[in-house]
Design a protein around this nucleic acid. Structure first.
Length: 316
DNA sequence: CACTTGACCTGTCCGC
DNA sequence: TGCGGACAGGTCAAGT
């Protein structure tokens, strides 16, 4: 699920709530998703919540740290003490909490889903937690909790020595952050030149080239740059590369401003959905009319094993 | 070496 | 209404 904008949105939400708290307990319900020993970090304080690419990094007061990768369907949801162990379906919720929490019911959720897919989500809700896809629960010193949910169990929580983090295979080959100074148009030109026979879509999804792009933002960036996803990198003109560089930055900034994308599973740290898909131009719009040219029909095609969406008129 | 496929999991959606 | 197959935002290992 989560790409850079979603993971960054979760990071910001968690940072607001858990930095400075002590981790008092961890309940691991699905052992295989947890690598390392949870006991080794119980009793430590959360000193910061950081992100590199799609990886969340929880810095702690001791020598260890914890990383969480959400992969396709992982969620991290924080609940204040007042909501822990309370089922919103049966209780009047305290209006003091930050976001408007709606009573949870089948009807309510369906309505919410429709609104999100169609265009204008206005309400958020919190699912009763834990549920059957909750695989780890973190308890904090103020009574609040963080729940790790993952329908597909692809996500991983890892505890390791802080000094070993940069040496992990994931971080060793992770490319630059697209919204930081290490990512420049010149860098993009150089990297593209190394793999001239690769489709540009495949290049964008490779985390060693750029950290944090996934299927949604790769497709949206290519639309914005007016480049077809199966173009070989070696065929891109200098102008197209410049456009692509700008498009990546603009797409990610726009997605961050919308709190990310929610097609199905994604919610932020307090259970709210993101609204980016309501303004997406190609992603998940197969068969629909192109917003820009009003002539093209959005197409879908497998490239490097991943479905890619594009407008055959706007993109060349 | 470059590129593709399969595995990891569970759920949903689509066509017949 | 039921059933089988395709598909889903990511990453890594194995195969071609």
């Amino acid at each position: 699920m989560p790409e850079l904008p979603e993971v960054e949105t979760i990071r910001r939400g968690l940072e607001d709530h858990i930095v400075g708290l002590t981790l008092t307990d961890i309940e691991v319900r699905a052992p295989k998703i947890f690598i390392g020993e949870p006991e080794e970090i119980i009793g430590e304080d959360i000193t910061s919540v950081e992100r590199q690419g799609k990886l969340l990094i929880f810095r702690l007061s001791g020598s260890k740290l914890m990383t969480i990768h959400l992969k396709m369907t992982g969620q991290l949801i924080w609940k204040p003490a007042m909501l822990v162990d309370r089922d919103p379906a049966f209780e009047e919720l305290d209006p003091l909490i930050d976001n408007a929490v709606m009573p949870y019911s089948e009807e309510e959720v369906e309505e919410d889903d429709e609104v999100v897919m169609g265009g204008h989500p206005e309400k958020s809700y919190l699912q009763p937690l834990p549920h059957k896809h909750t695989h780890a629960i973190f308890q904090f010193s103020d009574g609040s909790r963080m729940y790790f949910n993952d329908l597909r169990k692809f996500g991983r929580i890892t505890v390791l020595e802080a000094e070993d983090l940069p040496k992990t295979s994931f971080l060793e080959r992770l490319g630059p952050e697209p919204l930081q100074s290490g990512f420049t148009a010149q860098y993009l030109v150089e990297q593209l030149a190394q793999r001239p026979r690769q489709p540009i879509k495949t290049f964008l999804l490779d985390q060693s080239n750029i950290a944090g792009l996934g299927n949604i933002y790769a497709d949206e960036s290519l639309f914005r740059a007016a480049i077809l996803p199966d173009r070989l990198t070696g065929s891109l003109t200098a102008g197209e590369i410049r456009n692509l560089f700008d498009a990546i930055e603009e797409t990610l900034e726009l997605a961050l401003a919308h709190g990310g994308s929610s097609s199905k599973d994604y919610v932020n740290a307090v259970g709210d959905r993101g609204t980016f898909l309501t303004i997406a131009n190609v992603y998940h719009r197969t068969g629909e009319l192109c917003n820009r040219c009003q002539i093209g029909i959005i197409q879908r095609k497998k490239i490097g094993g991943r479905s890619s969406h594009y407008c055959p008129i706007c993109q060349r």
